[in-house]
Amino acid sequence: MTSMEDVLARGELSVRGRIREASNAVLLCTVTHDGVTAECVYKPVKGERPLWDFPDGTLAQRERAAYLVSEATGWGLVPATVLRDGPYGEGMVQHWITSAEDTPGESLLALVEGDEPGPGWKPVAFADVGEGRTALLVHADDERLRRLAVLDAVINNADRKGGHLLPAPGGRLYGIDHGVTFHTEDKLRTLLWGWAGEPLTDEAREVLRTLAGALADGAPLATRLAELITAAELAAVRDRVAVLLRTGVHPSPSGQWPAIPWPPV
């Protein structure tokens, strides 16, 4: 059976249009291989906007690296993602996920009145909603989100917005847009702070122990990541996994970097 990675990497890529609201060049495409046709997004390296804190031309590699780490956890939180040549040169190609919600992340995030999140929700921060009023931003107390929060802590995701959460048919949840990840400095910015300081689940600790082994020198995952990120960034991934295992808790905002991405959606 042809895997989605094979389809994305080896298939014929046809551009259908551009997603104009994206900050970098993002092209909606179809890809066909071995009788399988799928929708995907193609982000050419040439279309990456320069960032002051990330080297130019590296976002596509970071997206691929985030997918590989996600696969190593066994949680499958990132859609199949490959690096390949395309109509506008080398870039990242990722399987397009059709959200099960009319608005991505709609049932996972909310603004509520008062100081308490209510049953089934975790508090994030107070938000200005205009006219001198504030509301409490909350996210669902959902095991899928909690797994994603652990993954984000490992890859040091600097941009976990609400629009990057895609509930999919069948109860799956995917996270997308991982170009600003794997920095050596603590840049974790997310809407998933609801578990900050709380103990990691037994499942998360077991996954992190497995991941620590997969990141050891010479292990297949470590070898593949070394082709995508720098040696210092790979060492930082190992350090973050080690810290999570040693402390046994979800990280809290460092205070050295804005904790909430902007815009949050």
Rank of each mutant, 00 (worst) to 15 (best):
G197M: 02
L136P: 01
G132N: 13
E131G: 14
E143M: 11
A158D: 07
F182E: 04
R205Y: 01
A212N: 00
L151Q: 12
L151F: 13
H183V: 07
V138N: 04
L145Y: 01
A158S: 09
G163V: 12
R133N: 10
A168Y: 15
D128P: 08
A125N: 00
H139I: 00
L165I: 15
V138R: 00
W195D: 02
R172A: 15
L215T: 04
G194T: 03
V154H: 06
F126W: 07
D142Y: 11
L108H: 13
A216F: 00
A158C: 09
R189A: 09
F126I: 03
L109D: 04
D141E: 03
D186L: 02
G175W: 08
G194R: 03
L151N: 15
L215Y: 00
V150R: 01
G194I: 03
V180Y: 12
V180Q: 00
A127H: 11
A149D: 01
V154E: 08
A212L: 03
V207P: 12
L208S: 04
K161Q: 09
L165C: 07
P119R: 14
V112C: 00
Y174Q: 10
A216D: 00
H178T: 05
I176D: 01
T134Q: 15
E198T: 13
A158Y: 01
E206N: 00
D217C: 02
A135D: 12
T134C: 12
A212W: 06
E143G: 11
P167K: 13
A196E: 10
D202H: 13
N156V: 03
A214K: 06
F182I: 07
L215N: 05
A149R: 04
A168N: 12
E143A: 11
H164L: 13
E116T: 10
G197P: 05
G175P: 08
F182Q: 01
E113A: 11
L108P: 04
V154F: 09
K187W: 06
K122L: 14
E198F: 01
R160A: 14
R133V: 04
W195G: 07
T134D: 14
G194L: 03
R144Y: 05
A214S: 09
G170F: 12
A153W: 10
P169F: 15
V154K: 01
P199A: 06
G194P: 00
L188P: 03
D141S: 13
A212F: 05
L145T: 05
F126T: 03
L111S: 08
R146N: 13
D142S: 14
H178C: 10
